[in-house]
């Protein structure tokens, strides 16, 4: 594959596609449309193949038919429930009984709601509250001043940030002022994320440019 002609063809193909996507920056054009069409087709195929082998074959088929009885978990037959729900989903294609396809949908939505309710409450609410509750300064008083300020900032920021999210109270008076402070903190958070993301995104572009100019054209060492 790495040998001679194949290598050059692969390089050119990759470069053609790379430039095609970049050409969108100027404006929508034929080249971009071709790349987009290829991308949609190839990637839809890719994911279906991946799902097919990883989920349908490895999880269902192997679990139900291939694995010897002795090696199966006690509840291996539950796999049939999954497949049954999947087949109910396909009933959409039959107009008369299409409404049955709401059952697997109801199953998924219900299960998701149930799972998220507890896990998010535990990790997003309880754990975060627990972690916020800590002394601002300790007995030794040897903490540097900026660390104490940092602790105050975290406590005040979390407090006022939460006030901003209150829905059932009008943001007026002292409450409104606290909400304003809360927005300040949210804005700093957003600014920080923005800065970090700019850094990562620039790296991605550098990587692509390096491909074009060193790997493909070999203009740059």
């Amino acid at each position: 594959m790495e040998s001679g002609l194949m290598h050059h063809v692969a390089l050119w193909l990759a470069a053609f596609l790379t430039l095609g996507i970049f050409s969108f920056l100027y404006r929508d054009n034929t080249w971009y449309k071709v790349c987009e069409a290829i991308f949609v087709g190839i990637s839809a195929g890719y994911w279906f193949v991946a799902y097919f082998w990883d989920n349908l074959y490895t999880k269902f088929w192997v679990g139900v038919w291939v694995t010897p009885m002795a090696d199966r978990p006690d509840d291996w037959y539950v796999l049939y429930v999954g497949a049954a729900l999947g087949i109910l989903m396909l009933l959409r294609l039959v107009p008369k009984v299409g409404w049955i396809s709401r059952w697997p949908l109801a199953f998924i939505v219900g299960a998701t709601a149930g799972l998220y309710l507890v896990t998010y409450f535990a990790s997003n609410v309880m754990l975060q509250i627990e972690d916020t509750v800590r002394p601002i300064f300790g007995a030794e008083n040897d903490a540097p001043i900026y660390e104490i300020i940092g602790n105050i900032v975290v406590a005040v920021g979390t407090f006022t940030g939460l006030i901003y999210f209150f829905f059932s109270k009008e943001h007026r008076g002292a409450f409104g002022r606290a909400a304003k402070v809360g927005i300040f903190f949210l804005m700093i958070t957003f600014g920080a994320s923005f800065g970090y993301t700019v850094m990562s995104r620039m790296s991605l572009l550098i990587g692509r440019m390096d491909f074009l100019f060193s790997d493909w054209l070999k203009l740059i060492k």
Binding site: V109, G110, A113, G114, Y116, L117, Y120, F121, S123, N124, V125, Q128, I129, D131, T132, Y146, I149, G150, V153, V154, A155, V156, G157, T158, T160, G161, L162, Y164, F165, G182, F185, L186, M187, I188, T189, F190, A192, S193
Partner: peptide, 30 residues
């Protein structure tokens, strides 16, 4: 300092809010 101070506070407020929002929405659905 920004990352470990104000940023942490903001993230936390957002996370707690999201957690409660999910509880309330999940209950409406269930």
């Amino acid at each position: 300092w920004i990352m470990s101070g104000p940023n942490l506070a903001g993230q936390r407020a957002i996370m707690i809010g999201i957690g409660l929002g999910i509880v309330s929405m999940s209950l409406r659905i269930l």
